[in-house]
Design a protein around this nucleic acid. Structure first.
Length: 399
RNA sequence: GUGGUCGUAGCUCAGUUGGUUAGAGCGCCAGGUUGUGGCCCUGGAGGUCGGGGGUUCAAAUCCCCUCGAUCACCCCA
C-alpha cells in the first residue's frame, strides 16, 4: 500500500509537470525556526534538535521551508517561469505519539513557487484532490478560507481579542491563556459553549483587503469550474504567521482527533523570513502519508493485491536442490519472479510454501527430471501439469 | 509536558477471592499421502506472564518503581 501511494503521488505530480526535489533531513535550526516564526516553544518542545560544536540542527519537522531555502540557495528562479516542486519523505516531530501522529512520519507535498496567480492556488488544491481520488478515498472534506494580506490578520486578531476579552470568564482555562498567547487558535475550540460564543465573533472575512478578496473569489470560481466541493470555513486559521490569502485543509471524519490528512495555503511571506531580499510568492500543500493510509484503511479502500511469484521451484534431492539455484537464476534473467525453498524440506512442505507465496506455477525437479532435462510444470490454480524444458518455461507460462 | 487505558505464545486474547506442570483460536512445524499445495484429521514446538524490587508458605494476579504501547490534552508546521 505504501508503494501504491508513492506511485500515485509520483504519477499525479508528473501530470502536473512537477519535479521531485529532495532536501536534507537535517537542517539548521535557524532555517526551521525562522520559517515557522521563531516560536521557541515549538523548537524546544516539538522538534528533535541538537547541537554540534557551535552549530544547531534539527531533524526537519516539515519540508516547505527547506524547499524554499533550496529554491533561493540554488536560485531556481533563474530557470524561468514558475517552479512546481514536489517532495516525498520522512519528517520528525518530538511529540507524544497518538492516532495518526508519530515521531517519524512521512509527508509529500507540492510547492508552486514564483506565482501569485489564483490559478496556482487552485491547481495546488486540485492536484491534491486528484491524488486522494486516485487512491479511492471518498470520505473527505475540503475546508477553505482566505487569510488576507499581512495587515489583515493582525487587525482581525485585535478585533477578536477585543470581542473575547469581556467574555473571558466564560472561556475555558486553556482558551483564556490562548487569548494572550495565540488568540486565533481559540477558533479551533471543540468546546460547545465556546462555539456558541464564537458565533457572534467578528469574522476574518470582514477584515481582509480588497485584493485578497478578489483573489479568493477567483480561487473559488476555479475550484467550482473543475467540480471540487469545498466548505468555506471562516474559522480556518493557520497557526503560523507566514501564511497569507489562501488556506485550506482536507480532513477525514474517520481519524479521531487527528482528522487533518493534508493542508496548505499561500505563503508569500516565507521567502523573506528565510533570507530572500524580495518577496517570492508561493503556494503549496503538505499531506501526511500515515493518515492517508489510515483513512484508506478506515474506508476499506481496495488495496492492490500483493502479486505472488511466477514460479516456485520444488526440488527433490540434493542434485535437484543445487540445480534449483541456477535454474531459478535462468528464469529470473528472463524477467520472471522465481523462488524456491531454502531449507531442504519435504516436498509437501515445499508445495505448501509455494501455495503460501501464491505461486502461479510450480516447477518440480527430481532425479528423473534432471536426467530428462525437463521440469514438471504445474499450474497451481488448475492443477494441470506437464513436462517442460527449462528454456521453454517462460513461453509456457505466458499463455 | 499533563491525564486515561493497556502490556500473558509469532498474532488476537482468556486466566475465577493470590493456590499444582499458565490456556484457547489463528499462525508455524511434522505426520496422515515413501514425488504433489489449498480443505480435513492427528500430533508437536513455542511463553524470563514488559523489566526491577517488595509483601506472602505461595504472585500473571497485591504494592512500589521503571520501560513501552495506545488514546486524548498541550501543540499543530
Amino acid at each position: 500500500m505504501w508503494r501504491h501511494l508513492e506511485e500515485v503521488v509520483h504519477t499525479t505530480m508528473g501530470c502536473y509537470g512537477a519535479e521531485e526535489i529532495r532536501t536534507p533531513i537535517l537542517e539548521p535550526t535557524e532555517l526551521i525556526a525562522r520559517g515557522i516564526g521563531a516560536l521557541t516553544d515549538i523548537v524546544t518542545k516539538e522538534m528533535f534538535a541538537f547541537e554540534r560544536g557551535s552549530s544547531h540542527y534539527v531533524m526537519r519537522p516539515e519540508v516547505t521551508a527547506p524547499v524554499m531555502r533550496a529554491y533561493l540557495q540554488h536560485n531556481l528562479a533563474q530557470r524561468g517561469g514558475t517552479q512546481r516542486l514536489y517532495y516525498i519523505g520522512p519528517c520528525f516531530r518530538a511529540e507524544r505519539p497518538q492516532k495518526g501522529r508519530y515521531r517519524q512520519f512521512h509527508q509529500f507535498g507540492l510547492e508552486v513557487i514564483g506565482s501569485e496567480d489564483a490559478r496556482a492556488d487552485a491547481e495546488v488544491i486540485l492536484s491534491l484532490r486528484d491524488i486522494l481520488d486516485r487512491l479511492g478515498l471518498r470520505q473527505y472534506t475540503l475546508r477553505l478560507n482566505s487569510l488576507g494580506d499581512e495587515q489583515s490578520r493582525p487587525a482581525y486578531k485585535a478585533a477578536l481579542v477585543d470581542y473575547l476579552t469581556p467574555l473571558a470568564d466564560q472561556l475555558s482555562d486553556i482558551s483564556r491563556k490562548r487569548l494572550e498567547t495565540n488568540p486565533l487558535r481559540i477558533l479551533d475550540t471543540k468546546n460547545v459553549e465556546e462555539r456558541t460564543l464564537l458565533e457572534k465573533a467578528p469574522l476574518l472575512s470582514d477584515f481582509i483587503d480588497e485584493a485578497s478578496r478578489v483573489h479568493h473569489e477567483q480561487v473559488k470560481a476555479l475550484l467550482s469550474d473543475v467540480g471540487i466541493d469545498f466548505v468555506e470555513d471562516p474559522f480556518l486559521v493557520r497557526g503560523l504567521d507566514y501564511y497569507s490569502r489562501t488556506a485550506f485543509e482536507f480532513e477525514s471524519p474517520l481519524l479521531g482527533a487527528q482528522s487533518s490528512i493534508a493542508g496548505g495555503g499561500r505563503y508569500d511571506l516565507l521567502s523573506k523570513e528565510v533570507g530572500s531580499k524580495q518577496v517570492v510568492p508561493a503556494v503549496g500543500f503538505a499531506a501526511g502519508m500515515e493518515r492517508i493510509l489510515l483513512a484508506c484503511a478506515a474506508e476499506n479502500v481496495a488495496q492492490p493485491a500483493h502479486p505472488g511469484v511466477d514460479v516456485f521451484i520444488v526440488a527433490l534431492g540434493d542434485p535437484a536442490m543445487t540445480w534449483a539455484f541456477w535454474g531459478a537464476e535462468r528464469l529470473r534473467q528472463a524477467g520472471l519472479r522465481v523462488t524456491f525453498d531454502l531449507k531442504g524440506r519435504s516436498m509437501k512442505a515445499q508445495m505448501r510454501e509455494a501455495n503460501r507465496q501464491q505461486a502461479r506455477f510450480v516447477a518440480i525437479v527430481g532425479d528423473d527430471e534432471l536426467a530428462a532435462g525437463v521440469v514438471q510444470l504445474k499450474e497451481m490454480e488448475t492443477g494441470e501439469q506437464r513436462a517442460v524444458r527449462l528454456e521453454d518455461i517462460p513461453t509456457s507460462i505466458i499463455i
